[in-house]
């Protein structure tokens, strides 16, 4: 039933932001940022539970924890980069939004390099 609460918050916030948009656009942008934060806070507890469950499976399957930690980091960076980029897009600053997305991609690529190298080493071993 929490989804209905979140949709309600979204509608109310959207209406309030429309009221504010004409006179005070700067406060409207901040209201949308706070709405995003509030909705994420509602989901934070569920997210922690999912991450813990996945972590326990990774341990059971004896997968190296480095891989799961990197995947988790990449997910976090992707989420927060997308959050910032969407807020900038809403405010009309699409140039800044694309810069933020570019930065997110670069950081994720940097994080993914160790995994790629270990995978290539593995392939080298298998190759005759």
């Amino acid at each position: 039933m929490q989804i209905i609460q979140i949709i309600g918050i979204g509608f109310v916030a959207t209406v309030l932001i429309i009221i504010l948009k004409k006179q005070r656009p700067e406060i409207a942008v901040q209201a949308s940022i706070v709405t995003g934060v509030v909705i994420f806070m509602l989901l934070a507890s569920k997210l922690v539970a999912v991450v813990d469950v996945l972590g326990s499976y990774v341990q059971k399957a004896e997968i190296k924890p480095v891989y799961f930690a990197t995947v988790l980091k990449i997910t976090g960076i992707a989420y927060i980069a997308e959050f910032g980029a969407e807020i900038c897009n809403d405010a009309g600053e699409s140039a800044i939004a694309s810069k933020i997305e570019l930065a997110g991609k670069v950081i994720i690529t940097v994080l993914a390099v160790p995994i790629i190298t270990s995978m290539l080493d593995l392939i080298m071993e298998i190759m005759p």
């Binding site: 005070r24 700067e26 406060i27 901040q30 940022i33 706070v34 934060v37 509030v38 994420f40 806070m41 934070a44 997210l47 922690v48 991450v51 930690a69 988790l72 980091k73 997910t75 976090g76 960076i77 989420y79 927060i80």
Partner: peptide, 27 residues
């Protein structure tokens, strides 16, 4: 004045968000 007051609130909330994301995704 109104802008500064709202900014104070928003900055605090964004700090909370970033801390939460850091702890959840072990960033």
């Amino acid at each position: 004045a109104g802008l500064i007051v709202v900014l104070m609130i928003v900055v605090k909330e964004i700090a909370v968000l970033f801390d939460t994301v850091k702890t959840i995704f072990k960033l």
